[in-house]
Design a protein around this nucleic acid. Structure first.
Lengths: 166, 166
DNA sequence: GTTATTGCAAATGATTTGCACAAGG
DNA sequence: CCTTGTGCAAATCATTTGCAATAAC
């Protein structure tokens, strides 16, 4: 966890008159020990390894808190669970490419895209706040090589795209 | 319902060895009597007016069917229900601007955007399939005029953005 | 007659919430 | 102390599903 994050959280906690708890700290530590996006369930699994256990309720409450504090961004990858992105303070946009073959998710940025979207937004008579592009695409690897490691892995885990479980 | 839609559906039904039922027909009629996007619940309400009632189960099953047939596109507007778009055969992309003030949703197209996204996709080593851009923006109307009819309406209906109900 | 379709009610599954108890400050 | 935080179990809520009864073809 960067001091930047720590400070922002402390400020938020003070501002709102909230308190520090070991459960919350443990969750926050795990979240910001990586800059990969994750789901509530991913986080739950990571916490199992730790000795610092907490309930799912607390986990969800902490996720809401961090989102409200502006330290986490909720993103939607098209399945039925919310994905959270911790490392977005440097990234103004959230653009994802999801492979329809293997489910691989690639996060990317593109200056041209942002400029263009800003133009479009203003042209429509609005003021830009946030943007997220979601591209579904086919894995070139599968098309050209006839196989794709991600796909194999995904099948092993029973996680083929689309990942809707309902 | 355009003959184009009718034919495509008939073909699909025949191809899959399915059958024609009055319930399904009624639902399909209501859906394609407009080209506005809608949620399962919107559709349910519209059907109440008709004498052709069906169960929610059939409604959902029909939505899946039409999506599979390529006559409906599922889109995600950021709330917790799926939105369906019937009029997309002419529209290759799904770009939405959602106003964070009043919740108004504007669907738009932009040639530059599509070209750019195709480039980005290929650059990342994929082949483009589908894209959807979601822009959150502020209502200029509210900023400049100090009021926005959509917002007033939305408040009356208790539907302020974000529309998560859970 | 088969086999797909329907309606009902029950199941699902991620997320939220009420409540009594625990614990920061 | 006083309030916020926690864990538990129960509640939500859109959507799905099992099943027996119906209805296409």
């Amino acid at each position: 966890m960067t001091p930047e994050v720590r400070e922002r959280l402390d400020t938020f906690i003070k501002l709102k008159g909230l308190r520090n708890t070991p459960q919350r700290d443990a969750i926050v530590d795990v979240i910001f020990s990586s800059d990969e996006h994750f789901t509530a369930d991913d986080l739950w699994e990571k916490l199992r390894g730790t000795d610092a256990r907490s309930s799912r309720a607390t986990l969800y409450r902490t996720l809401s808190l961090l989102t409200e504090a502006g330290l986490l961004q909720e993103i939607d990858l098209g399945d039925d669970q919310t994905t959270y992105d911790p490392n977005f303070l440097d990234k103004p946009a959230h653009n994802h490419l999801v492979c329809v073959d293997c489910g691989k998710v690639i996060e990317f940025e593109d200056g041209h895209l942002e400029v263009l979207n800003d133009c479009i937004t203003r042209r429509l008579g609005f003021r830009p706040v946030k943007q997220s592009l979601r591209i579904e695409a086919c894995c070139e690897e599968l098309r050209t090589n006839g196989r794709c490691l991600n796909l194999i892995q995904a099948r092993l885990e029973g996680k083929r795209f689309p990942v809707k479980k309902r």
